[in-house]
Design a protein around this nucleic acid. Structure first.
Lengths: 202, 202
DNA sequence: GTCTATAACGAGATAGAC
DNA sequence: GTCTATCTCGTTATAGAC
């Protein structure tokens, strides 16, 4: 997501900080780190983001906005529910392929140390994801493309949780293959337990 | 797990540090925090764990050992594969009920900032979990109690990833219900997509 | 908007007395 | 095994010149 690099300083700061948070976590990066990469003095950073908390809030807001834009892109296409879910998974896979964790997944572990506005932003990210997924899942079930037990909301929760967890464990293990395995099983689950090509042995 | 509190100082330090890591993360707690709770000077802590890295390694080793002990307890019982999986999930649920994250799940996000011995310990934790789960899953399939596509290893990965992710998201969202939903779906997945009571509508 | 300089604090860690 | 005292460094943040 967002390979484009902005030219104004505030956006450059956000780009660098975002990567640092996704790799190291909110409490393990500093203004000095950004300063080094951007070749600008630490004090100058405070001109753009007065406090680290403000920077954190801006990071979350931008990340949510970018993610929502991607989701709308997927929704605007005329593809099937299954393909939409695959494209959703691909959003996560791309983050992992850069050896990063989802920004909000990362911040979720730091949650006890974050200021309230950041905590709220993280919760919103997950909520928005689940709303979008629920819509896609429900539409897919009505089309007959999907077939799952229970509410779309609870399958949506499973998707978000499992994808976040798979990123987490895959990174901790250095095993990207694990992520694809999990993703495949999630899709099968949404299809009623049937894999894409073969039926189960029974 | 391990409600018992040890009497020697090293173990008390580990108890306190473990909780701090599970709640705040490895980079967001300090010797000063332990000092405050244990009412002992910071310098004294270094007598027991020379460096923070050494403390971290001890934390992981003990956590793995305790977890393995729990797994052996489950295996020693003569219960069915399904019940064993339920008891496995219950290990995670208990951690979450204390508003903590799995120690190694927490450390997995911090992975880029950890010394090598700690990174290795985290990877081992996940590997051990997956080995144990794979055994239970395979045995369950042979008994006919379970019915899943693909390798036991890949279902095991799904379990670990999804449970870790569910803890993460549930904590970030303040929604413990989400965890139970995910857990239920994992069990259904291992049972071939069939929920415990009703069959799906089809 | 960027700089230099510095404040104020907390971190991990060590020395040496008791 | 615990204490006091101290060191060194990195952190967020501010003041004020350019």
């Amino acid at each position: 997501m967002s390979a484009k690099r902005s030219s104004n300083t505030a956006d450059k700061i956000l780009d660098i900080a975002e990567k640092l948070v996704q790799v190291r976590g909110f409490n393990a990066f500093s203004y000095a780190d950004i300063s080094q990469v951007l070749k600008i003095q630490k004090a100058s950073l405070h001109h753009h983001f007065v406090t680290k908390s403000a920077l954190g809030q801006a990071l979350i807001t931008r990340y949510r906005k970018n993610f929502q834009a991607e989701l709308q892109l997927i929704e605007a296409s005329s593809e099937s529910a299954v393909v939409r879910l695959e494209r959703y998974i691909e959003l996560y896979a791309q983050v992992l392929s850069q050896n990063r964790m989802c920004l909000c997944g990362m911040l979720a572990t730091d949650i006890a140390t974050l200021p309230k506005p950041m905590r709220d932003g993280v919760a919103k990210f997950f909520a928005e994801n689940e709303v979008w997924l629920s819509r896609v899942l429900e539409a897919g079930r009505e089309e007959g493309a999907l077939e799952f037990e229970g509410s779309p909301e609870s399958v949506a929760s499973l998707f978000v949780s499992s994808l976040e967890g798979a990123m987490l464990v895959a990174r901790g293990n250095g095993q990207p293959k694990l992520f694809q395995d999990v993703a495949r099983r999630l899709l099968d689950h949404a299809r009623g337990g049937r894999p894409k090509r073969a039926r189960r042995a029974g």
